[in-house]
Structure formats: C-alpha cells, structure tokens
Amino acid sequence: MIHLKFDQYYAIENEVILLRPITQEDFDNLLYFAIQEPEIWQHSLFPPNSKENLIRYINSAIKAREKEDSYPFIIYDKRTNRYAGCTRFYDIKVFHKTAGIGYTWYGKNFQGTGLNKHCKFLLLEFAFEQMQVERIEFKVDRNNIRSINALKSIGATPEGILRSNYTIENGRRDSMILSILKNEWFDTVKSILLKKL
C-alpha cells in the first residue's frame, strides 16, 4: 500500500525550495503568472491563463486532492522568497503502488535556475522513500522537448508515445511517457540528481 494520508498536511522542503499543499488563498500568489506570462502555458493541458481559469485550476487541484487522486503543491523559492509555480502527484494508484508527477510549471524567471531539479528530487525522494511507490510516471507533450530532455537527464526512461491522448485548446496532443522505477531511484537516479543539485 502507498503510505500517503490525504487528510494530513505534507510540506516537503530543503534549503532551496518549499513544496506545500495548494490552497484557495494561493490565487494571489499565482495571478501574476496567469496574466503576465502567457508563453509558459504553451504545453499545459489546463492552462490557468486568466483569472477565471486560475480559479478553476486551483479548485480542480483541491477537488482532486479531496478525491484522493492527486496531491498538488505550490512551489516556493527560498532563495528569492517568491512563489515560483506548481506541481503535483497525480493518478495515484494505491493498489498498484504507482503515481505520476506532473502539472509542473514555473514562472519564466525560475526556469533554468536549478529549481526544477530540487523539486524533482524532493518529490521522487518522498514518493519512493515515504509513499513507498514502485513506479513514478511522467506524461509530457511530445513537442515539449525541453521537459523531455530534463527528465532524461535525471535518469527517466522514455517508454513511448500515446497518440492523440489529450484534448488541448487548439486540438489534440500526443504524450511521451517516461518513468522511474523504485530500484532505479536507489541504484542511479538519486545519486545523479544529488550531483546536479
């Protein structure tokens, strides 16, 4: 069984980053990104790219947590003392001991700063060492080469393409599936990521 109690508050952090459960009060913390940085939503399935869409995005994330399917976080950069974006565990399958990591996005000023590596390290460490999952999966727009390469660079294994598996604002998208298994985390991925931090 996955060791995750949805009625408990999980904040995950290190000296660089804090991941804490998203709340409706985070609307103000994320509004700038929704309104002022439209280019960051290019590969987003559910872009919070307006006030109304941001409200829906936050409410949907909270409802998914209540349904025990997801555990969404807001990302806080301790180096700049600013909120930087969001991420979550999703598609959590207790019986199969699997989960996805996704819905991850950062404001432009936080991209390429190493924040994502800290975020992925904390999430993967929590998933494999606290939740006791056997597999973490990533679904990425096949055109999002930057994210695919970032996941490959930390040791995620590409598994293939799901064709036309999601509806997006301007049609359909194909998704690249990548994964990390529990033994891979302990054998290689953890040390690879630690060296990159």
Rank of each mutant, 00 (worst) to 15 (best):
H3Q: 13
H3D: 13
H3A: 11
K5M: 09
D7R: 12
Y9D: 13
A11T: 15
N14H: 01
N14A: 05
I17W: 04
L18R: 14
L18H: 02
L19H: 01
R20N: 07
P21E: 06
T23A: 04
Q24V: 08
E25Q: 12
L31N: 12
Y32L: 12
P38M: 07
R56F: 08
Y57D: 11
I58V: 08
R65D: 04
E66P: 07
E66N: 11
K67A: 13
D69Y: 05
S70Q: 12
I74S: 07
I75N: 03
K78Q: 14
R79S: 09
Y83R: 13
G85T: 04
C86T: 15
T87K: 08
R88Q: 15
F89C: 12
I92K: 04
K97E: 13
K97G: 02
T98L: 10
A99V: 08
G100D: 12
G100L: 05
I101A: 06
G102Q: 03
W105P: 07
W105L: 13
Y106N: 11
F110P: 06
F110G: 08
Q111E: 14
Q111M: 10
L115W: 02
N116I: 03
E125S: 13
E125Q: 14
F126Q: 12
A127K: 06
M131C: 07
M131Y: 02
I136P: 10
I136S: 07
E137R: 10
K139D: 10
V140E: 06
D141Q: 03
D141W: 00
D141S: 00
R142K: 15
I145K: 13
R146H: 03
R146V: 07
I148S: 06
K152H: 03
K152I: 09
I154F: 00
T157V: 12
R163F: 01
N170G: 01
D174G: 03
M176Q: 15
L181I: 14
L181P: 10
L181D: 06
W185L: 11
T188K: 15
K190F: 01
S191R: 11
I192H: 02
I192K: 15
L194A: 10
K195Y: 00
K196Q: 15
